[in-house]
Design a protein around this nucleic acid. Sequence first.
DNA 1: GTTAGGG
DNA 2: CCCTAAC
Length: 434
Amino acid sequence: MDCKPPHYFCSGSKTSLFKDWTTLGPSRRSDTIETVSRDDNGNYMADQRIKNLSSSRRWRVSPNLNGGASFRNDGKRRKIFHDGRTSYSRQRSKRISPLKRRDFFNQCRFSGSDRGFQLDDRFNSAADKRVDDDNYCAAIRVASSVASPHPHPGSRDRNVKLRIKSFKVPELLVEIPTTATVGSLKRSVMEAVTTVLGDGLHVGILLQGKKVRDDSKTLIQTGISRDGKHRNLGFMLEPRHAQIKLPRCLGEQGITSHATSFTLDPRTSSISLDPPVAGCINGAQRDHHLVPSLPNISASTTLPNSQSRVSVPAISGEALAVVPIHHRAGRREFVQRRIRRPFSVSEVEALVQAVEKLGTGRWRDVKLRAFDNAKHRTYVDLKDKWKTLVHTARISPQQRRGEPVPQELLDRVLAVHAYRSQQQAKQQQLKSGV
DNA sequence: GTTAGGG
DNA sequence: CCCTAAC
């Protein structure tokens, strides 16, 4: 019935995916391990807390509470969302509060000392470089040098030192309604990127043009050895799925459930590597769990009238570092604000009537009496609505917004409120006065 | 789980 | 609508 807003493919500038990184931990020379996250305005900032990607991601939405694009992976939550939020308050009570969210993210934060280690391109052995992309987080590090400061004596011929000079991630397509805000566009792109980096990618290794598929092989067995003949060794970020659909809910301005999807371009780019060089590593990292880290996206928000895309091209780093995240299944989890659903006049009528009968302060009963079938109205909502009704009734009609509430109803609101206030005042006097 | 009130 | 102290 309602016309579906057109969708634009939004184009991003071909800027580096991994710029604006800052030093995260002790590093030597100019090589740094860097993390990227965003500030309160949703901008991505370096060296702040990382919102981690959770393998057990249950439902994901925009962190911006006002109607950001969103999607969720959790069937339970989705069910609730689609069936009218049955028992919403229960659900809500289980959500992560902002503080909890902060705590959650803090657990995922990269630290320069204990958590953030630097593989420094030195692999202890083939087996040690066991990159389980589901459990590991790799941060790209721009390095000016690959020189190993502490070469491990006697291990030179058992280790291979790799320097990744460039890194590309697959192209992203972000589809978003034209009625979405720029902010939600940004969030959509972020969601797409984090999803891809979270569990939509895995690392592939290309050796002399051939994919190395057997993870159990050692580097020597595979041919990635010390002889320095493998200039064409490459790492790839490969889409785990050729296409990832992200059901989204844009809670903005009546955009409620436009399916937005982004498509992963299956094309991948390889990482060029310098010839292997003997090196060493100080072990102890083999059990760290890593997942791809969050790159900085600087996609332009211009909306061309034709299809284009958010392109997430390449970084121009020179080395790769791997940074662990303690959080095992550490994935991010956003909380979405409920979509705004203004009370209709009939709802106001029902509310006023119920409050006239039950009075204020029995919102659960009011809910049961007048809104038992309105699953999206909690008793807190009713309490809040009453509060705004009282306020609305007190201000001038010119100041009121939204669908006009009949003055008759507002008069009743004031009458009930005055009566209840009076009762309450008497109670107070009884309590303190005697 | 509800209520009440600030955000 | 959200959040949460207080009950």
